[in-house]
Computed example of a mutant assay.
Amino acid sequence: MRQWRRVANEAMQFSVSTAKFIALLHVTDSYLFSPILAHGSSMLPTFNFSGDVVLAERLSHRFGRVVPGDVVMVRAPDDPNMMVGKRVLGMEGDKVTFVDPASIRQYRKTTVVPKGHVWIQGDNTKESFDSRSYGPVPYGLIQGRAFFRVWPPNGFGFVDD
């Protein structure tokens, strides 16, 4: 009987430790920082086509500390299950001039970013589906700010402005 109590006690301690570890991982991933795989051609040359692993911190946007030039991770307005990485080019109240990707004659348009929104674009404008296509993005869709590249080794370091 004593042996079963000891085994049960050890199992309980292991379960509690495991639950605490999983909770710590969840809090860290959801509220502090998380690794993101950035791939595709829209952010060339900032990120590689084949994919870079970057750390995205999840505090700046909660405190209104996102500024133009930051690379942010955003829930895609047209597909909430997808996350996209784009550069912030305008904050609420800013005038943004851009070439409409839908126009054949490359007409330039100017718009004012509405309150509570940001203007995001990929660095590779020819291959990017961004605010030029779907308009300003609600600030609440920002999930984090990419700040540090972990992989590949030759790109290790802070994400450039």
Rank of each mutant, 00 (worst) to 15 (best):
T28F: 14
R108E: 11
V118S: 08
N124C: 01
D161F: 00
D79C: 03
F47D: 01
F47C: 00
Y134W: 12
V71P: 02
V118Q: 04
D130I: 01
R6K: 04
K86I: 00
V67N: 07
A23I: 08
H39P: 00
N124P: 00
R58L: 12
H117Y: 15
D79A: 02
F14E: 03
S15W: 08
V16Y: 09
F147M: 09
K20C: 15
R105L: 05
S133L: 08
S41V: 00
A23R: 15
F63M: 15
V71H: 07
D78N: 13
F98P: 00
M1K: 01
G116E: 03
R149D: 10
M82K: 12
P153V: 13
R149V: 15
Q121W: 03
A23M: 06
P77S: 06
G85M: 08
L24I: 09
I120A: 07
G140L: 14
I36P: 10
R105F: 09
P68L: 03
M82E: 12
S103E: 10
V71W: 00
V66W: 09
R87A: 05
K126V: 00
P77W: 06
P80L: 06
V71Q: 04
V118D: 11
V112W: 04
S17L: 10
T111L: 11
G135S: 05
L24A: 11
V67H: 14
Y139W: 10
K126Y: 09
D100F: 06
A11Y: 05
V67I: 05
T97L: 02
Q121K: 02
V88I: 13
V113F: 08
F158K: 12
V150K: 07
R108Q: 13
A11T: 01
R132M: 03
P101Q: 07
G135L: 02
M73H: 02
Q143P: 10
V159I: 13
R145A: 05
R87Y: 02
P68A: 11
R132S: 01
L24T: 15
G116H: 10
L24D: 13
S42V: 02
K109V: 02
S131N: 07
Q3N: 14
P138E: 14
I104V: 07
G40E: 07
S41A: 01
H39A: 14
V84I: 11
V66F: 14
K126I: 02
L89T: 00
P80Y: 10
P80T: 02
S50C: 03
D130T: 03
K20Q: 13
L141Q: 15
E127K: 08
F156M: 12
T28V: 13
R58C: 06
Q13S: 12
P35A: 15
Y139R: 09
G64Q: 00
D100L: 01
D100A: 04
V113T: 11
R105A: 10
G90P: 09
S17M: 11
D100C: 06
I142G: 05
V27R: 08
F21S: 15
L25A: 11
S60H: 03
N81H: 07
I36N: 13
L44Q: 05
F98N: 04
G85T: 15
V7N: 01
A19G: 09
F156L: 13
Y134D: 05
K109E: 09
V74Y: 09
G157D: 05
G122K: 01
T125D: 02
V67A: 08
A19N: 05
D130E: 07
Q143I: 07
L24H: 01
F156W: 12
L32R: 10
F49L: 06
W4F: 11
